[in-house]
């Protein structure tokens, strides 16, 4: 097992799903559930003659940050792009269900339990959504995760961590949007439609998927921070993500509603104002919106060290 202290200094972007999960929680507290020794790999990949993984590409388990039990889901992008199938989807849903069940149990046992002794769910997304080899089961699993989030509301906070190679796209893009809090690094990407598909739909003149800078400023962490779509922008180290989650662990579940972007009638009204701005502006580029938010030199801001970016960036308000 990787040395926990060493993991802390490691790039989140470069880290495997398991290292991210272990490093997120306090040293030595992570217990993997349905881990590789259980050999719960996908029967559907076997039927297709495709390589399988013992954990089906999702690391799930429970650890602790301070007093708080932290249920962790961590997707592995190197295995079929982190795509979600029946087993991986079931692992995600069950982890959230276990957290909800544990919260109910602890509250029933002690109605005066301290807020920071109750469970929290953290999900490290690295996925393009549905795994095509078992697409129908993968799609149904997405709906289950979404439903589990709504059931977790007011009981267990759900935190999204996005800073891995594949980003977070497709159906999992909706799923991440529906969490309570989103923490990204500048290398994280969040959206619905991946760059190649946009290029195919709109033509290379409108959107060149091979232009990495364009791709990052459309869906990357800095842009999502300015848009308010990610709540916190952290450095690309496991310790930085862990530090942000540790701060969040101090809050009672009720305080998490303030971070949400969607999930109530009032929030939908607010998003509608943002969409009205999109209609009015018809931005050709994300930088148009950065400028509108009050950033006079978007390109300079985009290139600034992330520390300076955090200090200087004006976030869009609608």
């Amino acid at each position: 097992m990787a040395n926990w202290s060493k993991l802390q200094t490691r790039s989140f972007l470069e880290s495997s799903a398991r290292d991210r999960a272990i490093g997120l929680v306090d040293e030595g507290t992570f217990t993997e559930l349905a881990g590789p020794f259980d050999r719960m790999s996908s029967p559907h990949l076997v039927a297709l003659g495709e390589a399988v993984e013992f954990d089906d590409g999702v690391v799930t388990g429970v650890g602790r940050i301070g007093k708080r039990p932290v249920f962790v889901i961590s997707q592995e992008g190197r295995f079929i792009g982190g795509a979600v199938g029946e087993v991986g989807g079931a692992k995600m849903v069950t982890t959230i269900d276990l957290a909800i069940g544990f919260a109910d149990e602890l509250r029933a046992a002690n109605p005066k339990i301290a807020p920071d002794e109750l469970p929290l769910v953290a999900i490290s997304f690295e996925t393009g959504g549905v795994r095509l080899h078992e697409s129908n089961a993968g799609l149904l699993a997405h709906a289950e995760v979404m439903d589990a989030f709504q059931r977790a509301r007011g009981k267990v906070p759900v935190v999204a961590l996005i800073g891995s190679r594949i980003g977070c796209f497709g159906g999992m893009g909706f799923v991440a949007a529906a969490t309570d809090v989103i923490v990204m690094s500048e290398f994280g990407r969040l959206g619905l439609t991946g760059p190649e598909v946009i290029e195919e739909e709109m033509g290379k003149d409108e959107f060149d998927a091979s232009n990495r800078a364009l791709v990052y400023r459309t869906t990357g962490g800095r842009h999502k921070y300015i848009m308010g779509d990610c709540n916190f922008l952290v450095d690309d180290r496991i310790a930085a993500f862990r530090g942000q989650v540790t701060e969040l662990c101090k809050l009672p579940v009720g305080d998490f509603e303030q971070f949400r972007r969607i999930g109530s009638a009032a929030l939908v009204e607010k998003q509608m104002r943002a969409v009205a701005l999109a209609a009015e502006m018809q931005p050709k580029d994300a930088y148009d919106v950065w400028r509108r938010a009050g950033n006079n030199d978007p390109a300079g801001l985009g290139d600034a060290p992330v520390d300076d970016f955090r200090k200087q960036a004006q976030r869009l308000s609608v």
Binding site: A143, M146, D147, F149, Q150, R151, R153, G173, F174, V175, A176, A177, A178, L190, G191, L192, T193, V197, I198, E201, M202, E206, F207, T218, T219, H223, K224, M227, D229, R261, I262, G263, L267, V268, Q271, A274, V275, L277, A278, Q282, P283, D285, A286, V289
Partner: peptide, 26 residues
């Protein structure tokens, strides 16, 4: 399908569909 455009990604199409799903679940 869902809106697959550049403006949609800049403003976050994923939130619109996510919002509807959460409302239905509620």
């Amino acid at each position: 399908g869902n809106g697959p455009g550049k403006v949609e990604e800049i403003f976050g199409m994923n939130k619109a569909t996510g919002a509807y799903q959460l409302a239905l679940a509620e």
